[in-house]
């Protein structure tokens, strides 16, 4: 039996430092010239510092903050694509990241083939995806287009297919990065319903948004970041209030 008390996401004094070169050196020629001249200078800056929080299983945490506050860095650390410079991040259970529009798709591949490619990217076998295939097609409403190449899809169609695949599997931790605005109004309603259904079944959610109304509606807790520091935490209502005050200032 897994420990019931163990949180789904645990961040302990997390810090992330980036070392950026003062001028962008992205080619070998310049790098060599500068290395010879000893002209390679770096600026270190902390995108996150001393950030601690925990999300219990089934809890939904909103992450608020202005641009550059460190929200996306935090999401990347939780998703496991980056490692923190200091502190630690622990996630229990499978994570489903929602990819940005079109990422994970091959444009020269048909819709059907992309379902399996996208599934494999998330670590699922062909067989497993096969059992979810009909459901994905039906939800995306793209039945007539599945044998067409994705490059001929409109961006809305691509988004619908991506959303349908990503939410067809039942992850334990869901990372939502402003993706609830996919497709037209009708599809948006449909997708919100589906996400709500996952909520009801007790999925743990990390939701990043600027929209306090959405955070209030979806999350029960929230944290607020400013310049890499965690400056407020509490119920979604409280933290949204603090954030709205900051916006007005």
């Amino acid at each position: 039996m897994p420990d019931v008390q163990a949180p789904a996401i645990l961040a302990e004094r997390v810090g992330m430092r980036f070392r950026m070169s003062r001028e962008k050196v992205d080619n070998l020629k310049e790098y060599v010239i500068r290395a010879v001249r000893r002209d390679l200078q770096y600026n270190a800056f902390w995108a996150l510092r001393e950030v601690s929080f925990r999300v219990e299983k089934g809890e939904r945490l909103g992450v608020l903050g202005f641009n550059g506050a460190g929200k996306s860095t935090l999401l990347k650390l939780v998703a496991g694509v980056m490692r923190p410079t200091e502190g630690r991040v622990e996630v229990r259970g499978s994570i489903a990241p929602l990819l940005e529009l079109g990422a994970g798709f091959d444009m020269n591949y048909t819709g059907r083939e992309n379902v399996f490619l996208y599934g494999a990217t998330m670590g699922y076998s062909r067989k497993y995806m096969q059992t979810h295939y009909d459901e994905i097609v039906e939800f995306s409403e793209l039945k007539a287009f599945m044998e067409q190449q994705v490059k001929d899809y409109s961006s809305g169609m691509r988004a619908r297919l991506g959303f349908s695949i990503a939410t067809a599997v039942e992850p334990e931790v869901l990372i939502l990065d402003e993706v609830l605005s996919v497709g037209d109004a009708r599809f948006q309603q449909k997708s919100q319903k589906r996400v709500q259904g996952m909520f009801d079944r007790g999925v743990t959610v990390l939701f990043v948004s600027h929209n306090t109304a959405q955070v209030r509606a979806l999350c029960d807790k929230a944290i607020l970041l400013e310049k890499g520091r965690l400056i407020a935490r509490g119920s979604a209502d409280e933290v949204c209030g603090v954030y709205e005050k900051m916006v007005k200032r």
């Binding site: 990347k76 496991g80 694509v81 994570i95 990819l99 940005e100 990422a103 994970g104 990217t121």
Partner: peptide, 9 residues
């Protein structure tokens, strides 16, 4: 890149 930025693999 677009996948590597988002998914741990």
């Amino acid at each position: 890149a677009s996948v590597i930025r988002k998914v741990r693999l």
